[in-house]
Design a protein around this nucleic acid. Sequence first.
DNA 1: GCGGAAATCATCCTTTCGGGTGACGCGCGC
DNA 2: GCGCGCGTCACCCGAAAGGATGATTTCCGC
Lengths: 158, 158
Amino acid sequence: MQFPPARPYSRLTIILLYGALGGLLIAALQLIEYRWLVLEHSIQIYGGLVAALFAAFGIWLGRRVTGTRERVVVQEVLVPAPSDFTRDERKVAALGLTPRELEILELIASGLSNKEIGERVHVSENTVKTHSSRVFAKLGAQRRTQAVQLGKELRLIP
Amino acid sequence: MQFPPARPYSRLTIILLYGALGGLLIAALQLIEYRWLVLEHSIQIYGGLVAALFAAFGIWLGRRVTGTRERVVVQEVLVPAPSDFTRDERKVAALGLTPRELEILELIASGLSNKEIGERVHVSENTVKTHSSRVFAKLGAQRRTQAVQLGKELRLIP
DNA sequence: GCGGAAATCATCCTTTCGGGTGACGCGCGC
DNA sequence: GCGCGCGTCACCCGAAAGGATGATTTCCGC
């Protein structure tokens, strides 16, 4: 699962908190002066303190409100699977290819002629031609090389 | 042309500027008090002013300094590892296949007829037949499907 | 410049392929 | 039983592919 970047406090809450902290700080500084920091240049000292503290606070607030930008880097990882062939049975069914037709297509892809295929599977060359014609029609191919190319693209044959 | 994200001032410059501005502000506030702001709660007033000003400055500084902050999210996407084909030039040389012949073999593998190949590469069908015949002879193939199969096995074509 | 590799084109001929059509048998489900 | 999908086989015809041979041009290296 994916979570969005966390932003636990709303901007309004932060601003209110900021105001309260500012008031407390001013009061504390005043208290400090009245109690034991009655120096000649105390105004510069706690002026600088206020400046530094609120600048730091502002930096923190600025970072927080700004939020983190995300840059999505798409990294292509090569799946090490060129060898494992699994037939796309959905496409086979969608095209209406029969097992015999797939078998003939595979033998065509292996570079055999119709006659050789016929001898291989013990049917006549004419039968092979019928099968191949049906395969071509179902694949929309005009040539056996085209049928082979389509068959490989569609993951019908290895 | 591509320009990198602008960051016109160095961080050190900003900090020095910040210090100078702080000193000037303190001096200005002191001047103001001595001149015409001799009020009872002037300490709260300009304390708040310093706080607000430096908080705003801090916010601006924080955003500016950390503006380029970004989190790089690596999103891995699976790619079917297709483009890792490198032609086996040693086999090409061993078989004596010319660049043109390889080109024709690739086009044959893509399922085109001789006529279509001729139109594609702007030569006559007869020329394509000559090239393909030489390819078949060099590969020992009797059919184009066989030549394609051999070409893929020998890593001559993708 | 000359020889050779490469690319181009052509012609003739044979083989293979592809499209179309028709037919037969077998198994399976309604 | 009847229809239907599937596998099988045959015939015809045109298109594509393949084999053999010859020729020309261009370019590159010796």
